[in-house]
Amino acid sequence: MNIIVCIKQVPNTTDVRIDPVTNTLIRDGVESVINPFDAYAIEEAVRIKERCSGGKVTVITMGPPQAENALREAISLGCDEGILISDRKFAGSDTWATSYTLSAAIRKIGDYDVILCGKQASDGDTAQVGPGISAHLDIPQVTYVKKIAEISAEKAKVERMTEEGYDVVETPLPCLFTVVKEINTPRMPSLKGMMRAKSAKPLKWTADDLEADASALGLDGSPTRVVKIFTPEPRKGGEMLKGGAEDISKELAELLKDVVI
């Protein structure tokens, strides 16, 4: 079973603060981490490999050179090999161009049965890249997977989370899954894995290494453009209600009269 995991390095939201004067994001000292949802994808990939006794987990990321750290961390968590897809030509990629670039890299890897992605990235929140990759590769997809109930060389039966519960979906392989938090509890890294990660040499692919249409990369390959970035008025703390529980309840019921009815 050969599995590809697509991950993204994102700023750690616990560290993201807003400058109260300029009202902009303070990026200084903000640590980069693996997108939280991708951690579940990594864990599930390693579990599938263990379940199917054998195979290879390849982790890929598109990003700046320092995204190599995310690949190393993924290797310390059990992935076998990492590939960094990095080139200045990718700058300004929207989800269309990003999924195109990643699908070109996956085509180059060639031999795969399962592609796993986190359901979305915590900095962009689009949830578009996973389905985008499956569309570019023209393979089936199941999104919001909360359980891989059965998996064999040819097919898988999975549970897809919906607003009301879940769907049970059967799919032939290869297939792309995007996963939600409920699917597993990611393991801790192992010391031996960390040592392996330290000495691992992730492959580095640039635009020239991919058989890709140059006009479909980066900003030029992106249908969308950001025209304005602004900080919303930060939400201000409001009124503090004081008094006994009953008085407060009466006051609040009065204040919320229009909202609750």
């Binding site: 700023p11 939201t13 993201v16 807003i18 902009t24 994001l25 915590s122 900095d123 962009g124 929140d125 969308t224 453009r225 950001v226 025209v227 304005k228 970035i229 602004f230 900080t231 919303p232």
Partner: peptide, 10 residues
């Protein structure tokens, strides 16, 4: 974006 910390017009 960034969990509502910034807004972007696209």
């Amino acid at each position: 974006a960034f969990g509502g910390n910034i807004m972007a017009t696209i």
